[in-house]
Nucleic acid binder design. Structure first.
Lengths: 236, 236
DNA sequence: GCCTGTCTGTACGTAGTCGCACGTTATTTT
DNA sequence: AAAATAACGTGCGACTACGTACAGACAGGC
């Protein structure tokens, strides 16, 4: 499970975008980790324990309501950061972050991260860009939840998840998808059925595979393209 | 309309929170302005022209869909900043910002703002805190739109607007409220009727007044308290 | 004063989603 | 192999909000 630290160069886009000198300095604080599906990286109402840079696997960013329902806002993979709000010493954090799949990556302590961030070098800009991308994604999600049908929203989330995973086959249950889209499970079963009948996806127990990406993108709402462009702009 | 620059100390919480030396340096770049209701401070898909620090009046932060519908994400008054994403040279900005009331304040050019921000002094932290507050507000709004009824959401927005305006009487039409809540105008007329019958608000043509704040807060969803706490934490 | 445009109240059929519940099929556990 | 658990499919009544349309009420300009 635990390899000797920093033997391999990471693939996480933040770390690879750092100039050598800055990376080497930061690498002093990085510890390689592997992560299991369901592992909680960051609980709501709690300061971040670590800042994570994922190489493999994806994590969900979500909020939950008093009534216990959950709503996903974003999915983070090797293009982003988790726990970056560690730069805020105190505060009221409503967001929860959990591994959607198994994965691996590196983590560092908030204090070290904050110090590096405050140097105002490359990491500073990279982190701000990711925050801006996340903000755009969250804003568009708010609109999408309000305006678009369950079926179109599901198509959007499946495309997004596939993008983050770099794979068209995804291990998710209807329950998971219900949390993404913010509807009840039975609503997902319907929507999955429609997408499957139209030949856009294949779905077995615990697995969904995108078969026809072009038509999926047509089926999804425009929010998919908007969010995709924002993320590409701010993470490249 | 235009008073000599910087004669009066601003009341905007960002500017008042700056240490004297930093404020004086920044004040070199500030120009006093007055703003009319409906004036657009920041169009979507366009880089910010200016960064604004409001003293009086409030502005809306909203996104719009392809179909032309609009959804409000946040209201900014003298506690916040508008156009702070000027610190991003390029990018894909989906957000639109428009004055909801007449107002006044100061503005500065993005370049000067960016330079001050990158000094990493007090302004840096103040801006980051506002961004975090906005992020929390947007996330909670996404959840709220998904989970709560029109009536509760309307109560939440009216309380929020009153907070930002520092007044219980608000000049808004049903059309405005429909954009806030993200529903059709007729839905607002219903909800207003209910709140009025219960004695929580008074409403005339183009005006709504909160009569019983305690009961309004009970009527609104928990999102109101959550967002309020986040904003107070990050702007004080 | 009158007229015009804005704002508000109301109505009605329809569509989408909810909440819940039950049954069936896989997969894992023992 | 049997039992338990997890995942999926389906059905149905209820309700919220939608889209649309029309009419009355108020305000400001001329």
């Amino acid at each position: 499970m635990s390899q000797p630290s920093n033997r391999l160069r990471p693939t996480n886009s933040v770390l690879t975008a750092l100039p050598d000198a800055e990376y080497l300095r930061i690498a002093e604080h990085l510890i390689e980790i592997s992560l299991k599906q369901g592992e909680v990286l960051h609980e709501s109402d709690t300061p971040a324990q670590y800042v994570y840079f994922l190489d493999e696997g994806v994590a969900s960013i979500s909020v939950s309501s008093e009534e216990g329902k959950e709503l996903m806002l974003s999915i983070v993979g090797d293009e982003g950061i988790v726990g970056e709000r560690a730069i805020f010493k105190e505060g009221y954090f409503i967001i929860r972050c959990e591994m959607l799949t198994d994965g691996s990556g590196r983590r560092m302590l908030p204090k070290a991260f904050e110090e590096e961030f405050n140097r105002g070098e490359t990491l500073h800009q990279l982190v701000l860009n990711r925050m801006e991308a996340r903000t755009t994604e969250t804003a568009q999600t708010a609109l999408c939840n309000q305006m678009h049908s369950v079926e179109r929203r599901l198509a959007r989330w499946l495309l997004t998840l596939a993008d983050r995973l770099h794979a068209e086959e995804m291990h998710v249950t209807h329950e998971h998808m219900a949390n993404m889209v913010g509807v009840r499970r039975a609503g997902i079963t319907n929507a999955v059925g429609v997408l499957r009948e139209e030949g856009l996806i294949k779905s077995e127990r615990g697995t969904v595979t995108i078969l026809d990406r072009a038509r999926m993108e047509a089926q999804a709402c425009e929010c998919y393209a908007i969010i995709k462009e924002a993320i590409e702009t701010f993470t490249s």
